[in-house]
Design a protein around this nucleic acid. Sequence first.
DNA 1: CTTATCACTCTCCATGGTCGAGCGCTAACC
DNA 2: GGTTAGCGCTCGACCATGGAGAGTGATAAG
Lengths: 331, 331
Amino acid sequence: MEDVFDDRRDDILKALVEEHIRTGEPVSSRAVLDATGLGVSGATIRNDLAALERDGYAVQPHTSAGRVPTSKAYRYYVDHLGPTRLRVATQNRIAGFFSSVQLELGRLLKATADLLSEMTHFPAVAVTSGPIGEQVRAFNVVQLAANTALLVVVTNSGRVCQELVRFQAPVTATELDRVEERVGQAVVGCDLGAEVMPTPSDVDPHLRPVVKEVVEALRKAETRSADLYVGGTHQMASVWDNLNTVQRVLEVLEGEARMLEILARSPGTSIQLASELGLAEDTDLAVVSSSVPGSGVQGRVGVIGPMRMDYKKVISTVEGVSRELGDRMGS
Amino acid sequence: MEDVFDDRRDDILKALVEEHIRTGEPVSSRAVLDATGLGVSGATIRNDLAALERDGYAVQPHTSAGRVPTSKAYRYYVDHLGPTRLRVATQNRIAGFFSSVQLELGRLLKATADLLSEMTHFPAVAVTSGPIGEQVRAFNVVQLAANTALLVVVTNSGRVCQELVRFQAPVTATELDRVEERVGQAVVGCDLGAEVMPTPSDVDPHLRPVVKEVVEALRKAETRSADLYVGGTHQMASVWDNLNTVQRVLEVLEGEARMLEILARSPGTSIQLASELGLAEDTDLAVVSSSVPGSGVQGRVGVIGPMRMDYKKVISTVEGVSRELGDRMGS
DNA sequence: CTTATCACTCTCCATGGTCGAGCGCTAACC
DNA sequence: GGTTAGCGCTCGACCATGGAGAGTGATAAG
């Protein structure tokens, strides 16, 4: 599967991708020549390009047009990117943002997505993921009506989970208070997602169903404990010139489950291309995301842009924002 | 300002708008003739159309093309719409949705926006607005770090407000508990937005600054207590055929403040056109929204679509969803 | 394996001509 | 006065044509 390249092939592939990123046009042998500074003739380049095409790294829109790199070429390119460095000015801007912003988790992540979007000019996302490693800090049951209540759980990272509980039979305020206290004792301080007391024995028998319903709701709240924040969607109109692609991107961003799955991948920084996300091969889309380091919440931030983006810049920005966000949340 | 029309002018204007809604093309005198069933000749229609153009109700893309209605024409048209009636099947679908859905306020509104979007095929929004008429049901201060805490307020309608508090000096857990209890006593059961106790006299003097900071945060939480939920943005790609318009719509949807302002208008149902929202006159955009009736939260739901939409259908759907949502929240 | 050369292919764009839709105008009509 | 019939005019949509330019692939020689 893995094709082996000599140095020149490698240079040419790199130039092909970079020129295409720069211009958006099919890349001619001449352009590759100028970009690489290779001391060979156009014909040689053309031979190599033809070989690359045979191997699936490039296509021609038509005979006698230049080459356009395929996803495979982009994949190779990003896999062989050198290390990236964040420009100091950019770094400062990010640090400035996080030192001045004063928001609770949800709004902080939304603001982070907005920042990332503004800096990269692509739509951006931020998520908190999974209940791993979080502890319950506060637990409340708030009665809304005779037979409905709202469960509110706050974790040590500042995440607030809500869940509606509907009781089979009406419950009085005092009864509910007792249930709240009893369940609260059991869960506050514990890990989120830990097994909650199986049998509440020391409670009025006729309140047992209520406790059970509350505990069930709590478990439900825990399982769906991942929030997605999206920012800068309006950037799309200048990023893609094609309504179909815009629609696909909007669908991805709106499909919360799908987006969370995309972002649930490996720790560290990852680059995923449309074809690797189960999208149509020809969808011009790449997701660059990075996990937020640090003790607390498992989170991830990223951007969603076209395949032809300035990866070095974007990667360093995403990682920079991610790092600073981690520092911020750790404090 | 208000032009006076005889019956025929009125019919023609109505036909002009409806034909344009139907086809999206400039409307010819012939098309008006067929649509109205008026027993007059084309020349007469043309005279009237020319008059309408003079009065600013229509424009020609070029000499010898049909007429396209202007915003002014649409405004006139929607102001003179007859009463709308919801189809029974649609009504049932809405009722079915609300009787089966089991979510807390935030997710309920998100789901409502999604429903509305799916039914109308336009992007949809739902908001809770202002603190008017809401009472505080629960009040919590959750410590996140030595000098930071999270304020969580739950209202009787099930809305959860959060606000981060950063203290000047570190605070111990027991101290914070006392502050929580003290402030809680003062605000639970009171109207949200009511003046909160000006001077806490019966509290340790060295805790006073902490109380003050908590109260300040509480007030801040109250003032920004309006949440915006958006659904079905991916519909945009099939609604508008123009990236610029899509971008403008995305900007409107993302500009939370702007969107809330748009939706903060008069009670009942309203239709607002781009030109009336401070957007470029030529932006093809209309917002149909309706306030959620009922005792509880002041809310509003709506859709954002092109000017040429089937207003009767959309209005009845928006109102239907709004009504059912009101019923649901009232219970 | 690399290079120079050349014919070939394909897109892009400007040109020009035809067609038809749909208007405005004018003069006649009720 | 409002309404009508008729006619000429205008303009965009569509299509075929052809030339220019870009860039390739192939071939044959170094």
